[in-house]
């Protein structure tokens, strides 16, 4: 199994600025509460292990439970599937309004978030000797990534499917099979990741590849900040798997893991940004020392996190079949 590290450096402000997140985050939390009120559905068991979720904590009144076996975090109440699909559509639209959360950083997100992912997908397919690829992006539209995939000219066809429609209806017999499926944080936000993976697998040809990115609870900033993380909120993070949990989820769904990496570059900066926002943030002396260390030290620590699979940005490649 491979793992990867990146030496690409970019600031938090260029991809997901903490300061600009507030309005969007509040919208997401309110919309989630509304959806759950209308169509409540409890989730008291871990989708990974089936174990009863342990208490973890609340994020503005919304309760998260913790999988005792993998450390993954799950919102303990979601909405019914149709209501959840509506919720994801609402927040996706909100992200894309002219004054949306990323409106001022579209170009830097393209360079720092999507271009590396395009390289990742393209290079991995080459390394696996997969040619003439029909690729499926699984997302709640509109997608920022599918147009880039199409423009690259590297794929025979680029298809986009609504993740909740796929999770609810499954893959139809008339659906075109694909050689690769891409789920950028999709497993983080759908109400039933197991069902979604089952449907994705059905769309993939035997030996087809699945590309998954996720924010993982086992990563440095998420593990350190826990429920105080400003990035932990539903529906975008209704599920926050640990790296181990994500591996288990994919393996149980019948995928052979080819790559498990945590090539994140922002863990230290994210904690630093939280400390700026809340100077009283409970951190150990070592953690504070780290955050005020020279940039070379912080960079070396971030690199260590990447190399040891301990950053909070995870990416996984799996192959359908054993």
């Amino acid at each position: 199994m491979r793992s990867a590290e990146t030496k690409q450096m970019f600031p938090l402000s260029s991809v997901k600025p903490l300061e600009a997140l507030g309005g969007y985050r509040s919208f997401c939390l309110a919309a989630t509460r509304e959806a759950i009120e209308v169509s409540p559905r409890p989730r008291d068991r871990s989708p990974v292990s089936g174990a009863a979720l342990e208490a973890f904590g609340e994020v503005e009144g919304l309760v998260y439970g913790r999988c005792p076996e993998t450390g993954s975090l799950f919102l303990t109440r979601v909405a019914g599937a149709r209501a959840w699909a509506d919720l994801l559509r609402r927040v996706a639209e909100r992200r894309h309004v002219p004054a949306g959360v990323y409106s001022g950083i579209v170009q830097s997100r393209a360079e720092n978030v999507y271009v590396p992912k395009l390289d990742w997908v393209h290079n991995t397919l080459l390394l696996q000797g997969v040619r003439r690829v029909r690729v499926l992006e699984v997302v709640t539209p509109p997608s920022d990534f599918s147009p880039l995939l199409s423009a690259s000219g590297a794929f025979e066809a680029v298809l986009t499917v609504d993740e909740m429609a796929l999770r609810i209806d499954g893959a139809g017999k008339a659906d075109q099979p694909v050689e690769a499926a891409i789920l950028l944080e999709s497993l983080d936000r759908v109400d039933d990741p197991v069902a979604l993976l089952r449907a994705v697998s059905a769309r993939l040809v035997d030996g087809g590849l699945i590309f998954v990115t996720a924010l993982v609870a086992s990563g440095f900033d998420m593990a350190l900040l826990g429920r105080r993380s400003f990035y932990l909120y539903p529906p975008d993070r209704a599920n926050c798997f640990s790296r181990r949990g994500l591996e288990a989820l994919l393996t149980q769904a019948g995928f052979t893991l080819l790559e498990v990496s945590t090539p994140g570059v922002l863990d230290v900066e994210i904690v630093e940004a939280h400390l700026r926002r809340d100077p009283e943030l409970a951190l150990s002396a070592f953690e504070r020392e780290l955050l005020t260390a020279p940039s070379d030290t912080r960079r070396a620590f971030q690199r260590f996190l990447q190399q040891q699979g301990m950053s909070s940005f995870a990416r996984i490649v799996g192959r359908k079949g054993r």
């Binding site: 199994m1 793992s3 990867a4 030496k7 090539p263």
Partner: peptide
């Protein structure tokens, strides 16, 4: 920008 792939097998 560099990416480093590590192999274990």
């Amino acid at each position: 920008r560099e990416e480093i792939i590590y192999f274990d097998r």
